[in-house]
Computed example of a mutant assay.
Amino acid sequence: MPLNTAAVEVRTAITRVLASWSGLVAEQRGTAAPRREVPALTGFLLRHLDWLSGHEAVGDLTEEVAGLMRAAARVVDAPPERSLPVGACRTAGCGGTLVARSVRDSGTPPEVVCTATPAHRWELHEWLPKDADQEPGPQDADGDALHAAAAATSLWLSATDIARLWQAPRGTVYRLASEKGWRRRSRAGRTYYHAGDAQRSLAERGRRTGS
């Protein structure tokens, strides 16, 4: 299951802020600080709410907690993100992993993003090789690292992968693969389709339906 980094970051921020205010209360009231866990920190602050309401910094506390609530709401209400690992980042000196990623109901096509450096990103059609069987040559290696990496990766996806990335019913994927003659390969008894063919067909379908 893909890690929801936004949720992790918000939870970390919540823990940090609550622990900071709990530390202030414990120090100024001469009491033991609670465990560094959100339920314990929240309960501790609520028990000292009357004292906090009269503290000179109560405005800052209120502002920080409100900000955390907004951040948490954005994570909870965000459209589900789908991702599929496609290999190591090919940007020189970067040790991150590339994932093909899409956000449901966003209206934007999938893109390839580095998990370590989000600035390393490309739209999926930029990442895909024009010819799935091409090999990166000297010109690719020297002048176009992106297409060299794409050719080396040769992105082939299962019908399930395609349905997940483009939020399309699997029946539609199989139908388009047959109608449009998508290139395919078999590995260990499973069929994989060329992602470039899927990209073109599903983009055309989206334009016709207005999605």
Rank of each mutant, 00 (worst) to 15 (best):
M1K: 13
P2N: 07
P2I: 07
V10P: 03
T12D: 14
A13D: 13
V17P: 06
V17S: 08
W21P: 00
S22Q: 03
G23H: 08
A26N: 02
E27Q: 12
E27C: 07
Q28V: 10
G30Y: 03
A32P: 00
P34V: 03
R35K: 10
R35H: 12
R36L: 07
R36H: 07
V38R: 14
A40H: 13
A40S: 14
A40T: 08
L41M: 06
G43Y: 00
G43W: 01
L45M: 04
D50A: 15
D50T: 14
L52V: 02
L52G: 01
S53L: 13
G54A: 05
H55T: 02
E56Q: 11
G59H: 14
L61A: 12
L68H: 06
M69G: 12
M69F: 11
P79H: 06
E81M: 12
R82K: 12
R82P: 03
R82H: 14
S83E: 12
L84N: 09
V86W: 04
G87F: 06
A88H: 11
R90I: 10
R90L: 09
T91S: 11
C94G: 01
R101V: 04
R104D: 09
P109H: 04
P110C: 04
P110A: 05
E111K: 11
E111A: 13
V113E: 04
T115I: 01
T117E: 14
P118F: 02
R121F: 00
H125N: 12
L128V: 01
K130I: 02
D131I: 08
D131W: 08
Q134F: 15
P138L: 14
P138W: 14
A141D: 11
G143F: 13
D144P: 11
L146I: 11
S154T: 10
L155Q: 08
A159V: 07
A163N: 09
R164K: 09
L165M: 12
L165F: 11
P169H: 10
T172W: 09
Y174A: 11
A177F: 07
K180Q: 15
W182V: 06
R183V: 04
A188G: 13
Y192A: 01
Y193C: 00
H194N: 12
G196S: 05
Q199L: 12
A203V: 09
G210M: 06
S211T: 14
